[in-house]
Amino acid sequence: MSILYAAEADEAAQWTDSLRALEPTLDIRFWPDWGDPAAVDFVIVGGRSPGDLSIFPKLRAIQSTWAGVNHLLRSAGLPHGVPIARMVDRGLTGSMTEFVVYQVLDEWRRGPELRAAQREARWLETMPRRAEDCHVGLLGLGTLGTDIAVKLAGLGFSMRGWSRSPKEAGMGVASFAGAESLPAFLKDLDILICLLPLTAETENILDAKLFAHLRDGTVLINVGRGAQLNDADLLAALSSGRLRRAVLDVFREEPLPEAHPFWNHPQITLTPHVAAITRAGTGADDILENYRRAMTGRPLLNQVDVRKGY
């Protein structure tokens, strides 16, 4: 029995060291030097599709080190019927919550305006705004979204969350569900956060049609997936004033091409897909548990519903 690490080589050491610290006897192999394909029982993948996984005839499970698995589900050679698990670890959740809460607080306490004033040597006295006067909407109420919604509600922000099916995020968070409720969810928001998984239904969801339901001056924070945003529609919404500012951590093409208009746009803040990165030290426990579950035929932790795409 062996584990094949089929993700990026520069990540291999941290993951394999963490796994072997928990279980020194593990037989871990590396793509493309896997030896006998029939000896591979469990494959670990990262943010890119590794190749044809159907060549492993006894594969029992596939584990992603990323929270999103859309790239894997769309790849050629994905073996039919082999369970897939995505990564939902405490380090990832904490990092994402820190990033989004920071961006919301920075916006509401006028951080961009104050930094611009400093660059101009201009003394700008601003009146702090109350958190309860800020209406924040969060698209996506999974593990990450729920933690963010609860934390922001705890700081006093007026929170609402939207998901495809009904979910309860917790005290202080109004819940919306289904396509028919989307306009009501979007109405009168100050800040819109996208943390949806990428599926056929959510691709290009951040477009002119959605922006039309927002009031002028809304701020967009996208930490979901780059393909959920229509780039041209975002630029048009910023130009018209429908959106006042956008914070983007994910993009259709990564790294973002040097000639892309987002780089130098005065109303866009970019970060290079660093809002939340899985840490081997906190994710290795779940991977080892899933390996053990796969070997005994039990359901995986955070197992993907292939029909839904997450």
Rank of each mutant, 00 (worst) to 15 (best):
A174R: 14
N204L: 08
A174Q: 15
P166H: 09
E180A: 10
R164V: 00
V223P: 01
R164T: 07
E168N: 14
D190P: 05
L234H: 01
V219S: 06
R164Y: 07
L214N: 01
L235G: 02
D190V: 03
A174F: 12
N204E: 13
G172W: 04
G178P: 06
V219R: 01
E168S: 13
T202V: 03
M159H: 08
C194F: 04
L198A: 12
L210K: 02
W162F: 03
S165C: 12
R160Q: 15
G172T: 09
S181R: 06
I221F: 06
E168Y: 14
D231E: 15
G217M: 12
L186F: 05
F211I: 05
N222V: 09
E168D: 15
A236M: 08
A208W: 07
L206E: 00
A208C: 07
V173Q: 06
A200M: 10
G161D: 04
S163I: 07
L238P: 08
L196N: 02
F211G: 00
K167L: 08
L195M: 15
M159I: 15
A177D: 13
A236H: 09
A212K: 06
F157T: 00
L192H: 03
G161T: 12
T202E: 03
D207Y: 01
D207H: 09
L238Y: 05
E203H: 02
L182I: 08
A227Q: 08
E201N: 11
D188C: 05
A208I: 09
D231W: 08
L210E: 01
F176R: 02
K187I: 10
F211A: 06
D190A: 12
L220K: 02
E201Q: 14
S181P: 02
S181W: 06
